[in-house]
């Protein structure tokens, strides 16, 4: 296969996904609203005192992000599976992992990136001390690609089941634990005044590793699912 053909197919997949989601904007907005609502529940549950809220802010935002990733995961492959697109993608001469990477990238653009943009609002609502803001944003920026990639694996595995929801959280949430630990740990380190960059770097490394390997797992899962 020539390089231009690979490139052409990759951009076709990405353009198609972008165009489809841009026509259904609620798919982008709903997970964000979900995060916002979950975040605003916490002050009501544990009280609005800044000492408690500030301490749990990063953890709450990250847990909300994990849950919203699960919530929006179905749209990754569900429609494509139902209308036959997924089947056609597996029959493309181009490597399926490459096309899967394209889908992961679009998913991140439309769910991970908006989350980074929304994060300051959440941090404000939860009274996260200013010292932790930049670290929170950094962890979200490097951590959300992991979220998109791992979600894609789970969504591809369960796409033919039709009722993936609860099963998907069972499969994915344990795998998100390192992400949660390092991300909230980094913010905590920033709050107590120690260096947060080792954890952020670690997350960035994990992110790269995941983006490198996950497309192959997604491709294998798609092949199993269209069987």
């Amino acid at each position: 296969m020539t390089q231009p053909a690979n490139w052409s197919a990759l951009t076709a997949v990405m353009r198609r996904d972008l165009m489809v989601v841009m026509r259904r904007r609620s798919d982008i907005l709903n997970p964000l609203l979900f995060i916002l609502i979950v975040v605003s529940l916490f002050p009501l549950a544990v009280g609005p005192g800044p000492d408690i809220l500030g301490r749990i802010a990063a953890g709450v935002i990250w847990v909300a992000a994990l849950l919203s990733a699960l919530l929006g995961s179905e749209r990754l492959f569900r429609e494509d599976y139902l209308d036959g697109t997924l089947e056609q993608l597996t029959l493309q001469p181009q490597p399926l992992a490459l096309l899967a990477f394209g889908k992961i990238a679009v998913h991140w653009l439309l769910s991970g990136l908006p989350l980074v943009i929304l994060a300051p609002v959440c941090a404000l609502l939860l009274k996260l001390p200013i010292a932790g803001w930049s670290t929170l944003l950094a962890t979200l920026l490097v951590g959300t690609p992991i979220l998109s990639a791992m979600t894609a694996i789970g969504a591809a595995l369960t796409v033919s089941l039709g009722r993936g929801g609860a099963l998907l959280s069972l499969l994915l949430l344990p795998l998100f634990i390192p992400l949660l630990i390092f991300a909230s740990g980094a913010v905590e380190a920033a709050l107590v005044g120690t260096a947060a960059w080792p954890q952020v770097l670690l997350l960035a490394g994990l992110s790269l590793l995941t983006l490198l390997l996950a497309p192959f797992a997604v491709a294998a899962s798609i092949r199993v699912s269209v069987n």
Binding site: R16, E79, D83, G84, E87, Q88
Partner: peptide, 10 residues
Amino acid sequence: GHKPAVKAEL
């Protein structure tokens, strides 16, 4: 196959 692989939104 049976399914047309046509995107309803486009």
